[in-house]
Design a protein around this nucleic acid. Structure first.
Lengths: 340, 340
DNA sequence: GCTGCATATGTTAACGTTAACACATTCGAG
DNA sequence: CTCGAATGTGTTAACGTTAACATATGCAGC
């Protein structure tokens, strides 16, 4: 039966068992009637021959590839790599594989990547926040009836589901934690408010200050151009130079927290003694010296929801767009000192 | 021509252009004769209709999926995520997509993952060092004539190509760098020598000491059970308690370096003033306070070689096994002080 | 001894692409 | 004007799987 160096086919099993393709198919799909004797024989043959169904043929016939596309850009703190991992894991649990496109897409490449996914006839596409993928391109996918899920992207599109992290609440919780330890002047490091996600984190920061009756001091808020260590470093230097510098800093990314620590190290100051520090995304915070309190995202939940949303839409292609909210978890690592 | 919500097929193009499938095929493959008029018309139709060839059908016919499997386990420092990224990028440049399996495989799962890849009829499989994938399973792939490339795994198997990083040289260079700055007692933190990769790094450490005429002091070498921050922390505490503690430490992973920094922070000591430190893999070192000198791996080279080896074997399935060596790059970040 | 249903199996036409093959037409060289 | 390239196009049989349809036997109920 073994055709040298070739994959075993249903036909090979059928021949060896002396039955037709259909009977083998019935055993494989556990559907329809097969005599006990034949079933046993076929199952044994499948085992010993190491038959594995050809997903290409299955896909061609069934019009489904069991492949899901994931558009994402990895960044230095590898948050998106972790999301990618979560997506992969959740997909695998449902019998899907993930094609991850991690480009740095100029707008041409972006289009090429989507074409690539369409070519592979992916059953769904997940688009994460830090890609540029345009509405037009998403509409193209929708037009092809390919379910699309966006993670942490803010615009809405008919028949496109979304996953949003409750960043406002997450940030507020972090800042409340700082306030509870007695801090009154709390610095903020984040991206300009043109980024919706960042807007939410900033609002959460404001919420917490407001709830505690603390005034928002513009001098304490640093808006930097990009997620990077260097940006955190520079922001910290700026904050240090203030006449009345903050005693604590809330950073909207662990990358910023790294920069804060580097700046402090340079100045010979320490966390938490000289400055309290809380980061965001919990990607690096456990690794730093000292380990930093940070706001963790529920990555597994994100992955599972992404797959679940695709599955749902695979069942009902014209279901109304749904937005799933995912919460955050404050992970306390003692980088916030208690102030007198 | 548009069949609502369905992908455009060659047949649709052919019909619209008033030609046969074969003619469209000739345009698509740029092969054979097509009249200029027809060519232009067909090309335009392909454009406007947004035709994308079905890789499932192509794969079924051509017995190639344009998919490459990658077996890997992501670890906390995300080194393997970065390798994964490099592999993806290199694959894409050659028209391949990557199916990444990032399990924490008990030996059953491992088998299931490989079956999954076989099911998708991957054109090749890349296996990275930190998986458990057994020889038996690899032999199965070889039996199916699927090219296999192993990254940083040490055993040899006929028709299985390998990529090895020149860890011995990389470690030696790092330690020589430390010695050049005047250090004489240099600690070592690494895994037990049962791991071949670690064995090489340890040998490199010994090489450098030997070349400099320095004695190897067993007391300065810490073999810890796993790559982790905690292990680095504990090793540092142990080294600190020595009567004659080292003035520098070479760690075989940036994760260890993180632990070293945490331990020093705890003790109120500083890098590089109180201890020189060099890490390995350059995954985290740039983010730490202070940034740490580390041995970088040529990730892009690893990715490109992996794909190139698969391509080569796709051309000649019974080519003899080849091992490609990839070098390292010492990235100096001033975490090694100059001793008197 | 039918009828009808449960059981058991086989045949065949897709799915979208490719490539081998066949069949035209044109044109230049002899 | 005829032969053989060169040019241009069409037909068809795979690739491996699925599912609709067809067929056949045995047996219970009447």
């Amino acid at each position: 039966m073994q055709r040298l160096g070739k994959n075993v086919r249903m036909a090979d099993i059928a021949e060896a068992a002396g039955v037709s393709l259909a009977t083998v198919g019935r055993v494989l799909h556990k559907r329809g009637y097969v005599s006990a004797a034949n079933r046993a024989r076929i199952e044994r043959l499948i085992q010993t021959a190491g038959y594995v169904p050809d997903k290409l043929a299955q896909g061609l016939k069934n019009r489904e590839s069991k492949l899901i596309g994931h558009l994402v850009v990895f960044n230095p703190n590898m948050l998106f790599a972790k999301i990618s991992l979560a997506v992969n894991t959740a997909a695998l649990a449902q019998g899907f594989q993930v094609l991850t496109m991690t480009g740095h897409p100029n707008l041409d490449e972006e289009e090429a990547q989507v074409r690539e996914l369409i070519g592979h006839r992916v059953d769904g596409v997940i688009i994460t926040s830090n890609t540029r993928v345009s509405k037009a391109l998403i509409r193209k996918l929708v037009g092809l009836k390919i379910p699309v899920v966006m993670i942490e992207r803010t615009f809405t599109l008919p028949q496109v589901d979304r996953i949003r992290v409750d960043d406002r609440q997450g940030a507020a919780e972090a800042v409340r934690h700082i306030i509870a330890r007695g801090h009154r002047r709390i610095g903020f490091i984040g991206l300009p408010l043109v980024h919706d996600v960042e807007k939410l984190r900033y609002r959460g920061y404001c919420d917490a200050l407001g709830d505690a009756g603390l005034a928002l001091d513009q001098a304490c808020t640093c808006f930097v151009p990009e997620y990077s260590v260097a940006a955190g470093y520079q922001a910290t230097e700026a904050l240090s130079k203030l006449a009345d510098p903050p005693t604590a800093v809330f950073a909207t990314s662990d990358l910023f927290a790294c920069g804060v620590l580097q700046a402090l190290h340079q100045q010979g100051r320490r966390v938490p003694e000289d400055l309290a520090l809380v980061g965001y995304d919990d990607t690096l915070s456990a690794l730093l010296a000292p380990p930093i309190t940070s706001v963790g995202l529920s990555l597994e939940a994100i992955g599972q929801h992404a797959i679940a949303l695709i599955l749902r839409r695979l069942g009902d292609r014209k279901a109304p767009a749904r937005t799933v909210r995912v919460n955050t978890v404050l992970i306390d690592r003692q980088s916030v000192s208690t102030l007198a």
